[in-house]
Computed example of a mutant assay.
Amino acid sequence: MRELSFVMHVATAAVLVWLAVMDVRSRRLPNVWVLAVGLLFFANALVVRLPFADVAFHVGTAAFVLLVGAGLFALRMVGGGDAKLAAAISLWTGAATLPATLMLVSLVGLVVALLGLATRRLDPVSCFGPMRALAMFSCQRGVPYGVALAAGGGAAILLPVLVPLLKH
């Protein structure tokens, strides 16, 4: 059971990495991959036999985050994919660790925003190699906040299963 749960956590982190790459490249977070993050939570909940009340609490947290995200989307402060991804990540974290997760996301988001500002005059089409990768972050195309969500959320999802391994 524990090994399968670990695999699901790592798979979720891998999906988040893929979403970050997609956001940098196209400024899109495809629903099917965001849905995979949420479905992996439910699969993991079955594997670890998470009580129904706990699952319901996680779902309630995700619904609240989605509602707030929808409001921010309506105000054009975040993208729709970002709102959905934040809700999917909050399924994993629940309310207890949501503030810490949001802090991680915010710190990474600051780095992403600064990188976007620093590269705003770079054109990915005219750059090569590592400079092209940096130019992909240019805020001229919008801030790829999915990167911050993926990194901060991924850390929050992986840390609970990695820390016990490091203690042994």
Rank of each mutant, 00 (worst) to 15 (best):
V24P: 06
A36M: 13
V65C: 03
A62D: 05
A53P: 01
F42M: 13
A56D: 11
D54M: 07
A56K: 03
V59S: 01
W33D: 07
D23F: 08
V37P: 09
V65I: 10
G69R: 04
L72W: 00
V47E: 08
F41H: 03
L29Y: 03
G71K: 03
L40T: 06
L46N: 10
L39A: 14
G60P: 11
F57Q: 10
A63M: 03
N31W: 06
V24E: 10
H58P: 02
L67H: 00
F42N: 09
A53T: 13
A20N: 04
S26F: 13
F73L: 14
R28S: 12
N44H: 06
G38D: 00
A62F: 09
N31G: 07
W33Y: 15
V48Y: 09
R27E: 04
F42R: 08
L72Y: 00
R25I: 05
A43W: 13
L29Q: 03
R28D: 06
F52Y: 12
A56F: 11
L46E: 12
V55A: 08
T61R: 07
G71Q: 04
T61C: 12
P51S: 03
L29P: 02
V47T: 13
A70V: 13
S26T: 12
V59P: 01
F73H: 11
V68N: 00
L72H: 00
L67W: 09
F52G: 00
M22E: 15
T61A: 09
V21Y: 15
A62I: 10
V55Q: 06
H58R: 02
A53G: 02
V24I: 15
